[in-house]
Design a binder for these strands. Sequence first.
DNA 1: TAAGCGTCGATTGTCGACAGTTTTGGCTTG
DNA 2: CAAGCCAAAACTGTCGACAATCGACGCTTA
Lengths: 233, 233
Amino acid sequence: MRVKSQLVGLPEVVESDLVRQVARSLSAAIVEGRLRPGTKVSEAAVARELGISRAPVREAARLLENQGLLRASPRRGFFVRELSAAEVDELYDLRICVERHAALAASCRLTQKTRAALREQLALMDALARADDPAACIEADYQFHRMIFEAAGNSRLLRVFDGLSSELRVVIGLIGRLYDDPMKLARAHVPLLEAIEAGRADTILAEVDHHLGVARREVGLLVQSLSTGAALP
Amino acid sequence: MRVKSQLVGLPEVVESDLVRQVARSLSAAIVEGRLRPGTKVSEAAVARELGISRAPVREAARLLENQGLLRASPRRGFFVRELSAAEVDELYDLRICVERHAALAASCRLTQKTRAALREQLALMDALARADDPAACIEADYQFHRMIFEAAGNSRLLRVFDGLSSELRVVIGLIGRLYDDPMKLARAHVPLLEAIEAGRADTILAEVDHHLGVARREVGLLVQSLSTGAALP
DNA sequence: TAAGCGTCGATTGTCGACAGTTTTGGCTTG
DNA sequence: CAAGCCAAAACTGTCGACAATCGACGCTTA
């Protein structure tokens, strides 16, 4: 026991942690596409813009480097990570691997509560698709998959997913309005959830493979079109 | 193309990167068991001992935090990560998931060269076991598994493994001489390699499950005995 | 005219310092 | 003698500054 006297677990101090704030800020800028892949991220500039010193910025940059959002080039600074088509393929390869596991585990441990939450999330996606808000729809998509990993009940597995998706979002953030059909995106998740609810292992695996296989192809095409210099909104 | 004119590939400048040096130093101290789980890692103390300022130490600590070796407690400093039995179970759950994938992929892409390297590694383990050097044997064990991930040809998958094993090594580093039978450890890997060489998917999966299942149990027992305050060398 | 070299500005890597907070040790008190 | 409180020390979080290094621009030269 390291805790001397634990009262009720109430306080949960709001982390004023400047480093994490900076990390979130930068992360958001990257994911939202305001910082394009390949862009140099100057410590001094960020520090000036945020009105703080360079030390917290540096640490935040290290954090994002380890998360795969930034690439550190010694003595030259940090750059927004660029993803080649091959790397996207790697990411999806790994993602299929872990998401199969997550979906199976989630199916085993599925509670009434999480089942309802998952259904609600799909309804949200559908609503956002109807409202023609692709960005929010993609965010909801991400959350849906993340909920599956949460339901799997393995925090390390969830961490891998977070790492993966933060890398992927460097690219996916660029999709925005480009996404052709949000409705299709929303509907594509229904059979996956149904398979998880049904609890048949082979069906679940097939659905995950299919769902992510499609995503892998589409994101792959996107990246390819990006690297050939297609126009962006 | 970013390189203007590539001469022969000679230079390979030694990275003076102080941060990584510190990270390696701390990492080694933790893995080798000189820094026990739960121990506070004082920035000032480390900086003094290494004869440098606190800034690089701070950044290295952040790095190790993100790697799972340290735990950051705001305003209180960094502590060597402690692993509960449940967390070790989580780690092995994830590891089985990714190692199944890695073993399958490695089997598909197996070249003559990597096959020879894997066999050599097993021979090395055997030799170390005969020489009664459990620490080196464990290191060789780790390297063998890492080589499988390398052979799989997915750098992200490898990164997950590195993350996993760095967390596990916090515990495993404490085993040292406690390990009961190094020879058993060395021999246990033979069928796994043979399965990979044979290239039969179901056999590979079964071997991975068996091999890691055993390891999971043994490490789990170790952690349990640690938490009950068993003596250590 | 084009290629190579040297210099200048800008940026990173590292340092020491200061303010605020946590911990520790001793002291008081029941 | 144990528990609680108070003050001092130690430590973290952040800052501004300096030296070393990198990239760019202009100059020299074949």
